[in-house]
Simulated assay, not measured.
Amino acid sequence: MKNTIAGLLVGALALSTAPAFAQDALTLQLKWVTQAQFAGYLVAESKGFYDEENLDVTILAGGPNIAPEQVIAGGGADIIVTWMAAGMAARESGVPLVNIAQPFKRSGLMMICPTETEITEVADFPGHTLGVWFFGNEYPFFAWMNKEGIATDGSEGGVTVLQQSFDIQPMIQGQADCISVMTYNEYGQALDAGYGPDNLTIFNYTEMGNDLLEDGLYVMEESLSDPAKVDAYTRFVRASMKGWAYAAENPEEAAQIVVDMDDTGAATLDHQLYMTGEVAKLVDPTDPKLDMATYERTVKALLDQSIIKAEPEGAYTTVVTDGL
């Protein structure tokens, strides 16, 4: 009898220490390396916000040889962070991606030209070499040039496009007259190198009305037919936005979290703190919903440039953000 009671007590103790429900596992693939561009997700993981939503989230760093669209298509992730142009192009190519939330409301993309190039307006571009990132990041540039009627094949009256590295070296080394930068990353590198508004002409995509939607959250369409997955996505977005809010309110701590979570050791505290402050200007932590006016402008630009051939159907859903 004593052994029976002891066995029951041990069993009861084991049950009392076990979690009530197993956490739902989700894998997030970032668009780029571990940096404050993704501070909201990194903070949410570090501060336990995903745990509070009963989620076990694995965050995968990206890089120059990693295409989030390919990762999720191959089953390596449940959710990816990518720009809408890349997501739309992938969808039309047979990877049925769907936007479930849009934390980034504004574009951080700019093009900068040193004053010695004598480029002061778009009309000065023809005959010059412009640095542009590829791997899905080129679409906003080509849409802009198409809007301006400027050829990008190096022909007379057009511009030559240099496939730019992900830094400001092409400008410093004179390989390009103008280069692409993000407000929250490479522009900071330019400032550190002695450049700024006094010796640069700055073309801000948002201020010009040429901004296309950038970092959004995308999943595979078929997964949205599973109510359990939709529920997990909803909890993920809620926790992520809590992470974005915390990062905006606590930039120093957020920057340190980014540095601590960078396995490569490449992230520096000063630069991540700069990035955290600049990224906060692009994210609305209270509203992860997709802005339809910006969505329609993005789609129109992609259609005009023939980046996509047909008006997309089912490329976004509000089922997740409606459930917050």
Rank of each mutant, 00 (worst) to 15 (best):
K242Y: 13
V283K: 01
A67N: 15
L303M: 12
T286M: 08
N185W: 00
A39C: 13
G74N: 11
T17N: 12
G48F: 13
G108H: 02
N210E: 09
C113I: 03
L217R: 00
A176Q: 01
L213R: 11
Y184M: 08
G40E: 09
K309H: 15
E45R: 06
E121Y: 05
A61W: 05
P197L: 06
P114L: 08
N199H: 07
Q29F: 09
T317H: 04
N250L: 09
T317C: 03
T201N: 09
E249P: 03
P103Q: 10
I100M: 02
W83I: 05
I257M: 09
Q173W: 14
W144M: 12
Y246C: 00
N146A: 00
L212Y: 04
L324C: 05
T115I: 12
L224H: 11
G209D: 01
Q164N: 10
E278C: 07
L212N: 09
M275Y: 04
M111W: 07
D284P: 06
G63V: 13
E253T: 11
Y195L: 09
F135Q: 06
D284M: 02
G94W: 15
L60K: 12
E118Y: 10
P126K: 05
L162G: 09
Y218C: 00
A151W: 01
V95F: 10
V299I: 14
Y50S: 03
A310C: 12
V258M: 00
V33H: 06
V283S: 00
G314W: 01
I150V: 08
Q164P: 11
P19C: 15
K300E: 07
Q37K: 07
G127V: 05
E313V: 08
P19T: 15
D291M: 10
G323W: 02
R238M: 05
D260A: 09
A255M: 00
V43Y: 01
N65L: 13
Y139N: 03
T318C: 03
K47N: 13
K31S: 11
A14P: 10
P312D: 04
S165L: 08
D177M: 04
L30R: 00
S180M: 10
A254I: 12
G196E: 02
W244I: 04
M110R: 07
Q189S: 15
A310G: 14
Y195R: 06
M241G: 13
D291V: 11
N3Y: 09
D322H: 06
Q23K: 13
L26I: 13
L8R: 12
D304A: 13
E253A: 12
